[in-house]
Computed example of a mutant assay.
Amino acid sequence: MTVISSTKNPEALSLTIVAEFDAGVERVWQIWEDPRQLERWWGPPTWPATFEEFDFRPGGKSTYYMTGPDGSRARGWWRFTAIGAPGRLELDDGFADDFGNPVEDMGTARMAATLEDLGGRTRMTIASTFESEEQMQKMLDMGMEEGMGQAMGQIDAILAGQPAA
């Protein structure tokens, strides 16, 4: 498993997940900037993602849905706020309705992904910050921590060039 730590900090309203990969930073960056590679890992194995819109630039928007085992769809959106290839990506993250519009009562989380060179290996840190304790708890209750860990656990196969399952 690639995830080496997961830390909840209720005082800072944050969840931070750290993983390490046997690939260089440039290669790991590709799993963020290429929506077809992103679809192979964003979402736990039982809830694969499909990106419908993917405008990978500061101010750009992305919309996606994850399909559950029963065929139901959970929709989400991202707004890219900063992109510093190949080491840092920042975005606003939220739930969407069936038309891709933000679901306001679910709030918006901020996510920052950083990639650090470990001499040919890469450490990826994904830090999510929430608007309130209630929002953070709701996301944790929905399985965000476990789901992110499972999602990131799929990255090794992509980096190794294995075909999609």
Rank of each mutant, 00 (worst) to 15 (best):
M1R: 07
M1A: 13
V3P: 14
I4Y: 00
I4E: 12
T7K: 14
T7H: 08
T7V: 15
T7S: 00
N9R: 11
P10K: 02
P10M: 00
A12W: 00
A12N: 09
A12V: 05
A12T: 03
L13D: 00
L13Y: 03
L15D: 02
V18Y: 00
V18T: 15
A19D: 04
F21A: 01
D22C: 04
A23G: 08
A23W: 03
G24P: 00
V25C: 08
V25D: 03
V25S: 01
V28S: 00
W29C: 03
E33R: 12
D34G: 05
D34F: 04
P35K: 08
P35L: 00
R36K: 14
R40I: 06
W41S: 03
G43S: 10
G43I: 13
G43R: 05
G43P: 05
P45N: 13
A49V: 02
A49M: 05
A49K: 04
F51T: 10
F51R: 06
E53H: 11
E53Q: 15
D55T: 13
D55E: 12
F56L: 08
F56Q: 01
F56I: 11
F56Y: 14
P58Q: 09
P58I: 12
G59M: 12
Y64H: 06
Y64A: 12
M66E: 05
G68Q: 09
G68P: 03
P69T: 10
D70T: 09
D70P: 08
G71P: 04
R73G: 07
A74S: 12
R75A: 10
R75D: 09
R75W: 15
W77T: 04
W77A: 03
W78E: 09
R79M: 08
R79L: 13
F80E: 02
F80K: 01
T81N: 01
I83G: 02
I83R: 03
G84C: 06
A85D: 08
P86C: 07
P86Y: 03
R88C: 11
L89V: 06
E90M: 07
L91W: 06
L91D: 05
L91V: 05
D92H: 13
D93I: 04
D93Q: 06
D93K: 04
G94N: 05
A96S: 14
A96F: 09
D98E: 14
P102Y: 03
E104V: 15
E104F: 05
M106K: 12
T108F: 06
R110S: 09
A112M: 15
A113Y: 05
L115E: 00
L115V: 07
D117E: 15
G119I: 13
T122P: 09
R123E: 13
M124K: 02
T125P: 00
T125F: 00
I126M: 15
A127H: 04
F130A: 10
F130R: 10
E131R: 10
Q135E: 07
M136G: 01
M136I: 12
M136E: 07
M136Q: 11
Q137C: 04
M139V: 10
M139R: 04
L140S: 06
G143D: 09
M144D: 01
E145G: 04
G147A: 07
M148Q: 01
G149W: 02
G149N: 12
G149V: 11
A151Y: 03
Q154R: 10
I155T: 09
D156M: 04
D156S: 15
A157Q: 11
A157Y: 05
I158L: 12
L159C: 14
A160Q: 13
P163V: 01
A164E: 15
